[in-house]
């Protein structure tokens, strides 16, 4: 995932999906980014050139028979190259604690330093009526 000196990048920060042009300038790198409509685009483009990373969303098994499978996501991006390694770790993981959405399930996922959050509700009873 190393880059050529100039690259076109589709920004994935929001649904607009801006097409960015990113260029690395000089040996002490500085970057010229064009095409972005907001500052998040610039940050994304630099990240994409240096260390592309993504939020991982998937499911994990639990020990609870009423919710044997729950959805999870990383609390922020992890390096793209670590995604499959993280998936492998999660394949044999089993959640043993009931959590609300947004609560931390794993503090450091696969050595990325990024936490894994539960995203589905493992606590509230099924119905409210």
């Amino acid at each position: 995932m190393t880059m050529a000196d100039a690259r076109q990048i589709v920004c994935i920060q929001c649904p607009q999906g801006c097409t960015l042009r990113a260029e690395k300038l000089g040996t002490v790198p500085s970057y010229e980014i064009t095409g972005n409509k907001c500052p998040r685009g610039r940050a994304y483009a630099i990240k994409e050139l240096t260390n592309p990373s993504r939020t991982l969303t998937t499911t994990v098994a639990t020990v609870f028979s009423d919710c044997p499978l729950v959805s999870v996501r990383t609390d922020g991006d992890i390096p793209l190259r670590d995604v499959f390694r993280a998936m492998q770790e999660l394949n044999s993981y089993r959640a043993k604690k009931r959590l609300h959405p947004g609560e931390v399930m794993i503090a450091d996922l696969a050595g990325t330093g990024v936490a894994l959050l539960a995203t589905s509700d493992m606590i509230t009873p099924d119905t409210t009526n």
Binding site: S71, H100, P101, D121, N129
Partner: peptide, 20 residues
């Protein structure tokens, strides 16, 4: 699921019945 949960919370806080 998180987006749904937030709205579900708002529904629960208001005591709106969900006849499921």
């Amino acid at each position: 699921p998180e987006y749904a949960y937030r709205y579900h919370q708002m529904v629960s806080e208001r005591g709106i019945p969900v006849i499921s």
